[in-house]
Design a protein around this nucleic acid. Sequence first.
DNA 1: TATCCCATGTAACGAGTTACATGATTCT
DNA 2: AGAATCATGTAACTCGTTACATGGGATA
Lengths: 192, 192
Amino acid sequence: MAETVKNTKITLLGYILLGLLQKQPQSGYDLRKLFATTPLMNYSDSPGAIYPALRRLKKQGLIKDKITKGNSLRICRICHLTSEGLAVLRKWLKQPVTQLEIIRNVDLLLMKFSLMDEALGPKRSLSYLKSAEPLLAAHLTYLRTFLQDKGPGMPLSGRLALDFGVRSYDTLLQWIRDAIIAYAKSPKPNHS
Amino acid sequence: MAETVKNTKITLLGYILLGLLQKQPQSGYDLRKLFATTPLMNYSDSPGAIYPALRRLKKQGLIKDKITKGNSLRICRICHLTSEGLAVLRKWLKQPVTQLEIIRNVDLLLMKFSLMDEALGPKRSLSYLKSAEPLLAAHLTYLRTFLQDKGPGMPLSGRLALDFGVRSYDTLLQWIRDAIIAYAKSPKPNHS
DNA sequence: TATCCCATGTAACGAGTTACATGATTCT
DNA sequence: AGAATCATGTAACTCGTTACATGGGATA
């Protein structure tokens, strides 16, 4: 039944919406507020992006909405995941980290991680972090050697920008290592 | 003559191409190689993006191309900036840093900086960094207080992701401060 | 009652993605 | 001679941007 996961195309925004709805059923406006007033604000809160995205997900059977009257008297389309939606979200989150993600979409990495906990459980989150570490270290090495080799011939601004890249990925690597420790510690490591 | 800077719309990729062409006249393929094999690889090297972008810039009179035979015998469209192109690039780089750039497009900040040196000179680069610092510090404060206020009620993964955000912006702020020092030092500060 | 915020939508437009296509040239 | 690379292009498709529109409920 709910085993068949269709291979319809879903955009990044679509997945993010699925992840946020999995945490808590919400209206489109609630989601917009998340993008407008929380640290998620690096994503766009444009209604022209979010409402059409929700409609697509609905048409694909990944979410359903229920018109309710919230704490106020206004009507409100509260969206929630279907079992297919949850399956699709899980499938997405289970995909292994790729080098390309490391290079092009670092913040996607973080986004996935922060959604993973509730959708797949802490164990998966931990292994996700562990699997990302070597890829990250590899890219950091690449940047470092590039800076060493080509740096001297570059203008100051280029060298500095590259140096920022190195620092940036170094920060991420350090964070991952700390997060691994925090994760291995927090939910009792032996039990369940 | 070359004073009139038209207000045609140019995409981010367009500006980046202008910046790279200002550093050195190149062919589309050369530019693609930059995006494919250097730390610029966080941008796409898709020909379906680059060649149309170049054509647009050409149509807008911002670049011209010269068909030459490089070191090899193959033909090659070497693109170079026109004076209008340089003016447009300069105008773009002169725009003050906005809070939205800080939040949504950190790497754009770095991109602009690394192009600025050759297009506007080191003095402008320095003042660019200086102007970015307070905006950056403000956002960092926002993230820190958010973590303090809402952190305890968040799941571990959310807290960790937010913590990464803090570290990330902290790294940038530290880099900016170091870069300011490096810049103020490197080209003789008193003379010319 | 006027104005703001809530809450949802819609339409035009452009640019990037993906995938394919084309020849010439160098390498093996 | 065949394969890989150089070098440029094109076409369909789709999503996000921008801007506008709507109407009920809250607030002053």
